[in-house]
């Protein structure tokens, strides 16, 4: 099982780095949006809530461009059947899920670095911020992987995926924004409840998606 998983992940990583579609989209998107916000506000945003909201909107929308790409490429080049005749659908799901998680965490880290660099924000609780960012991006990946598959199978490029994913992701989106906002304020707080909520949310959706994925990833 682990070997099969590793082979799938290795294949996807090789293809992604060779085709370099994801990397270029994500990098350009997050940089452009952050800088344009920097321009618009001259780098001075006083309310921490606004900082957090902008940060998460950038992460969310750069995620929306990439999370369904992993499946879309398989459908577009109709290599999905090739995978299905060699591996069970759950192995394919887990490998895509892990890739989406890595992609989302990389996006989150990159966006926060660019954000702090471009827009003057005072981070009081750095470690908490990183923890929430990672928990949030992981839960984004967990929640939207199957929806990415649905959007890819439906054949619609990016648009449908965002529409489908947004209402499902809204709960964790609001929790993430609120807890990140507190990181930009002085008073001490514990991000534990937010992180637990985010992880619980992703565990539940991850489990349900694990069971549902084989129903849609077949008969190509």
């Amino acid at each position: 099982m682990i070997k099969a998983l590793w082979r799938n992940i290795q294949k996807d990583i090789l293809i992604e780095f060779r085709s370099r579609i994801i990397v270029s989209i994500v990098l350009s998107f997050s940089v452009i949006v952050t800088i344009s916000i920097g321009f618009a506000t001259g780098g001075i945003i006083n309310s921490p809530l606004l900082h957090a909201a902008i940060l998460w909107i950038i992460i969310f929308f750069s995620g929306m461009n990439t999370l369904s790409h992993v499946f879309f490429r398989e459908i577009e080049e109709s290599t999905a059947l090739f995978g299905v005749i060699h591996y069970p659908a759950v192995v394919i799901y887990l490998s895509k899920l892990l890739i989406n998680c890595c992609v989302m965490v990389v996006i989150a880290i990159m966006v926060i670095i660019i954000y702090v660099f471009v827009i003057s924000v005072s981070v009081y609780h750095g470690i908490y911020l990183i923890a929430i960012l990672i928990a949030g991006s992981l839960s984004l990946a967990f929640a939207t992987t199957v929806i990415g598959a649905i959007a890819a199978l439906a054949g619609a490029r990016g648009g449908l995926f965002t529409i489908l994913a947004f209402p499902v992701v809204l709960p964790l989106f609001t929790v993430a924004i609120q807890s990140t906002a507190r990181c930009f304020e002085q008073q001490v707080f514990s991000p534990l409840s937010a992180i637990i909520f985010l992880l619980a949310f992703s565990m539940v959706l991850g489990m349900v998606s694990y069971l549902l994925f084989p129903y849609i990833w077949r008969e190509f």
């Binding site: 294949k11 090789l14 293809i15 060779r18 085709s19 080049e77 109709s78 290599t79 059947l81 090739f82 005749i85 190509f220």
Partner: peptide, 9 residues
């Protein structure tokens, strides 16, 4: 013919 191999590999 409908089982495509990975072109980037």
């Amino acid at each position: 013919p409908y089982i495509n191999v990975y072109k980037y590999l």
